[in-house]
Write a protein that binds this DNA or RNA. Sequence first.
DNA 1: TCAAAATACGGAAACGTTTGCGAAATTATT
DNA 2: AATAATTTCGCAAACGTTTCCGTATTTTGA
Lengths: 341, 341
Amino acid sequence: MSSGVNLKALAAELKLSPSTVSRALNDSYEISEATKKKVVFMAEKMNYQPNPFARSLRENKSKTIAVVMPERMSSFFAKVIDGIEEVTQQHGYHLLVYSTHEDVEREKKIINLLMNGRADAIVMSVSSQTSDVSHLARLHERGFPLIFFDRICPDIPTTKFITNDYESSYEGTKHLIQQGCRKIAFLMLSKELSITKERYRGYLDALKAAGLSPTPSLQVTCAHDEEKNIEAIRAMLTSADRPDGLFSSVEKLALATYHAVKRTDIKIPQDLKIISFFSNLSIAGLLTPSLTTITQPTFQIGEECAKLLIKKLTKPRQPDLPNQLISIPSKITIRSSTIAV
Amino acid sequence: MSSGVNLKALAAELKLSPSTVSRALNDSYEISEATKKKVVFMAEKMNYQPNPFARSLRENKSKTIAVVMPERMSSFFAKVIDGIEEVTQQHGYHLLVYSTHEDVEREKKIINLLMNGRADAIVMSVSSQTSDVSHLARLHERGFPLIFFDRICPDIPTTKFITNDYESSYEGTKHLIQQGCRKIAFLMLSKELSITKERYRGYLDALKAAGLSPTPSLQVTCAHDEEKNIEAIRAMLTSADRPDGLFSSVEKLALATYHAVKRTDIKIPQDLKIISFFSNLSIAGLLTPSLTTITQPTFQIGEECAKLLIKKLTKPRQPDLPNQLISIPSKITIRSSTIAV
DNA sequence: TCAAAATACGGAAACGTTTGCGAAATTATT
DNA sequence: AATAATTTCGCAAACGTTTCCGTATTTTGA
């Protein structure tokens, strides 16, 4: 139901053939400048809009990229998509955006839907439930351009964009130790997640380097229910083995921790020092006390994902996405939540 | 580059004609149950995926809905989209998501891009810069299904979903007055916005009902630069005419106000009581002091938008979207930021 | 001046569906 | 038993592009 005017109508009006009009609009070398002018002018005048589906059908590409991520209500993912959109929009690409809601079944359904070519590529971050990655492997094996960011699949040989999870976590944990923490809790979403593994490894190594060992009861795996998370954290914080420091591997768990602390008489940072991966800088400074954060280069991650894809999709005979892990460093910003008093 | 197998290949394998296979897969009444079984089985086996563009071209519909909104880093818009996705996904629709970044030029470009039929409908919330709505009017006049939510265009005769902006603002302002406020500031994004107008009207009427009149210097219009907003608010809060209450018409300005207050020695709620339209309830409870909020039914707004569109798009001969304003009430949650001490 | 090359355009096929129409085979009706 | 109706399927057109060829016209080269 577009504007009603198509190539044929435009051609008829110009007394030219559709093929000539098409070529003129696509700036083909075999059309004279004179007719190009006329065609472009008339196309403008009649408000001709090429039908994207006819074009996609013919050219076998959609000028569309799909973004699949675990949730929408997250400053991290929101900013990454902003970054993606920034560069894709400049190249005339459109963005299909899907949220899996951390549900691997929904993730599978979405991936399967995308196998029909509705999008030219997928950039994704897996759900916290995703352990079996066969749906993604299958997609990749068929040659479908797929790249990961943040929550990656290490075993799928394609390009992945991450931050320096290990090093940042190591440094963050070291910072807590330097501030006097000896019993440091670790909060994670799911042990399956790549980011959990890397960040946990950094945390453990920093403990080890300081001659400390992790307390099992202080390693809490959270779920999707915010209230339950808060209660689990509160229970942990008020247990006999209560921690004096806390490392949250994701933003939402830092917020849950602040909620949990509000239900106790624990004082931050006197009784408990907190550091967290966190993307919403405005909020970090507004929390009481302000939160020491490890901030990922969100926007840049999105941009890099998109740039790589655009290169792959627009150059004629581009090789497959290389199997590489590209790391863009995070930045630690020390605020009140870890300042020894 | 889908899976490689198309209708013709599938038909050849089955020794049937493509038309029969198509009808079988679409469960047409003119195909026997026996062949339907065979076709479906073989389609499954060969992993046949219908080409969406061929289908869209033929049927002149894309099974895609576009969402156009001012920003992505907003809990309000994120939740609305979650609501939209919830129902559209159930009906096999896909979501193209665009952010205008509060830039009317980008908004125009996006709208013009969407005129070619890439999406079957648009659900949108206009940018704060949007005063000339001719690009949207044109779209609607061409019969393109368009519905608004939150930041609407009153003059375009289609369906709009809002919350009870006037009443909520009236009640919120009344609450501030009841808590002892006499000089109440009003924070807004742009005077052009429908939500600004309605919320401001509610604010003004509540003042008038209490025999108060607004102080011009306390009505601040903000821009897109967060730091500038914070400074403008700080200046206003510390001026000679300093307010004792503040009504923020959008979430981000409440956060800016908390930042501004941090730069002064003002105490909330002792010196200044604050209420705001706010969607991120988790954060509202975490601010210090916790923020009294007017929370919109975000998810439900999204659901209702999508339900209406799905009905319009799936029923064969559906009339145009009616020119109506549907209001779903907000809820005021009183927290510490307005509790008189 | 004449052949060769370059230029500018049109005809038609192709992309993969859906569907109107026709037709063969089967079943129902009188 | 002859005709009518129903069931089941195939042919071909159509959706709106792009592009492979072919061709007529003009320009170039010797």
